[in-house]
Design a protein around this nucleic acid. Structure first.
Lengths: 168, 168
DNA sequence: CTTGAAAATGAAATTCAATTTCATTTATCA
DNA sequence: TGATAAATGAAATTGAATTTCATTTTCAAG
């Protein structure tokens, strides 16, 4: 199920795109990897969508631009993007890993409708504070956290007809 | 990796055990399923451990009591226990589903060491409040949430035999 | 420009937890 | 008791994630 994403995220400007490419290719250089056409296409496609993409979904989008790029390259490139902070994995706990871009994004969390799959971003600085607080209390070196709220969105509640969970 | 669990949870008294069995078998009756020796053995084994168990780990424990019980039965029984609220799935995002008992437990969350896998429970009523608050704000019928903090525990930091991971 | 070594690519194979299938056994109740 | 609906468990299947490997490409040193 495609994770439609409701947020305050504008499409990237040409400049932002260039900046992201710069971050990516500096990262590649740093770890001794090479700049390739495929990696550039994948990065651009990734930044152009606002949805939370699984590897397979990004694969389908990239294929429209360059049908010769394989699934494996998408898979590996997403890992690279996560490594340099341009992407991060969001675990919605539905069996597939999804990624969202993190470039120029402020800290946020997601509320997910368990019926239609839509995800809404929300902002809550308290969550970050909690991470720090609890970490200190238990002598953990806290590095990250996950926080998602699950429920039924307004639309699904109104439509009321529960769609029997279809196969994935 | 076995998820060692640090918490304030005492082993169940004989009475608590009986109460849990009662809840389980009432649930079975309600949905038209049958009371079997296997299901009872699985429930008892599950309640007796304090760790966060994957299906496979519980299978190994149950096998010590009754080697004839198969993996599939554990798998299905865990789903049943989750259905009636005696167990709940905790997603630590390491690729396997884990369950913990929920019988007579107060609301809590987990902090997980990404090095050794130990998980520590903590209590934070604010998190529940946040769920409610955010749900109201976005007109979601919020039913549950996940919140985990990841980091390095004190022991692992002291033993320090891990190469400092390059930040991400 | 070459060119050679290191890395990248992508199709196919593999892994592994989760889930389903199905033939047989068991619990329940009239 | 018997009828029958459900339970069981071994084996098969699924599907996402990951690895393998033969071939192609990048890049920097000459």
């Amino acid at each position: 199920m495609l994770q439609r994403r409701i947020d305050d995220h504008a499409p990237p400007t040409r400049e932002a795109m260039r900046e992201a490419q710069d971050i990516f290719f500096k990262h590649l250089k740093r770890v001794g990897l090479k700049h390739t056409e495929q990696r550039d296409t994948i990065l651009r496609t990734f930044l152009e969508t606002r949805d939370h993409l699984s590897t397979d979904e990004l694969f389908r989008l990239v294929r429209q631009k360059d049908p010769k790029i394989g699934f494996t390259t998408i898979y590996r490139t997403l890992k690279l993007l996560a490594e340099c902070g341009l992407a991060s994995e969001v675990a919605f706990h539905d069996g597939v890993a999804r990624y969202e871009h993190q470039f120029n994004r402020r800290s946020h969390h997601h509320m997910v409708c368990t019926d239609c799959g839509v995800s809404v971003e929300f902002f809550s600085p308290e969550v970050g504070k909690l991470e720090e607080e609890i970490g200190r209390k238990y002598h953990f070196d806290a590095t990250r956290h996950t926080f998602q709220i699950y429920g039924i969105c307004e639309d699904c509640r109104k439509n009321g007809k529960r769609v029997p969970a279809t196969s994935h």
